[in-house]
Design a protein around this nucleic acid. Structure first.
Lengths: 124, 124
DNA sequence: GGCATGTGCTAACTTTTTTTGGCATGTGCA
DNA sequence: TGCACATGCCAAAAAAAGTTAGCACATGCC
């Protein structure tokens, strides 16, 4: 109803996921990467040249984008035997309004919980 | 069409603005602040108690939220003469999809431009 | 006055994120 | 073999963000 999802079937993201996706998108380089890939898929070196940044830097950003589920990597071997890693954007649709934020906040990991915490709520 | 706006009449945000808003929302504390204020407006100390964080910390976050245009402050004098600073959320509606990101990216400040740059585009 | 409430500020510290540079691997081809 | 192009990784530096602690001010009230 409010936010939609990167991977799999459309469903709402939880608070922690939302924070992660927003943090990932909140960067000029990564925004450019998403924009570039949304126009056409590209392989790493190609993308690095297109954006004018180093491969090392680009890889870090691509890794974050992938971790957030915003892009997907696909390794393909070109005709001349080179192994190229192609990236493409995943479909996603996130709606941000005070209401959706309020809803997401309810599923945030409670403060004080250090790293490695899980929601001990339902069954299991 | 894609993203909407915090202040004034609805209009789309530019790339830099989008990055700023996303970066602002990409934080658990600030997400909680927006959620809390979207339920009911509160004054600083009250909000700090509600969230269980220090006023100093809260103020930093409130400042960022205000700078991003997500919340608004309003100083009011209570019956007993205390000056309280009430905060409330501003209306905003941002849509995030590969397309809206692509559109926003086009208006990003070109890379390499250090701090203190302006878009030499429209009038003014 | 002393205590509770509200506000503000800043300096310093800790943590996270971003960026750079170097080095290693593999391929095809002249 | 040596060059061009593809991939990967890692350590260290640099920059940005988050957090804490302490102090300042004002008010009303016992």
């Amino acid at each position: 109803m409010t936010t939609s999802v990167p991977g799999g079937e459309p469903r709402d993201l939880g608070g922690d996921e939302l924070v992660r996706v927003l943090a990932t998108l909140a960067n000029p380089h990564r925004l450019r990467v998403v924009a570039a890939l949304s126009r056409e898929r590209m392989y790493v070196s190609e993308l690095a040249r297109a954006l004018g940044i180093s491969r090392a830097l680009l890889q870090v950003h691509l890794r974050k984008l992938e971790a957030a589920g915003l892009v997907t990597a696909r390794v393909e071997v070109s005709e001349d035997g080179k192994a190229m890693k192609f990236y493409e954007v995943n479909r996603f649709a996130i709606q941000l309004t005070p209401e959706t934020v309020e809803a997401a906040e309810r599923t945030l990991t409670p403060p004080g919980d250090g790293p490695g915490e899980q929601k001990t709520k339902g069954s299991m």
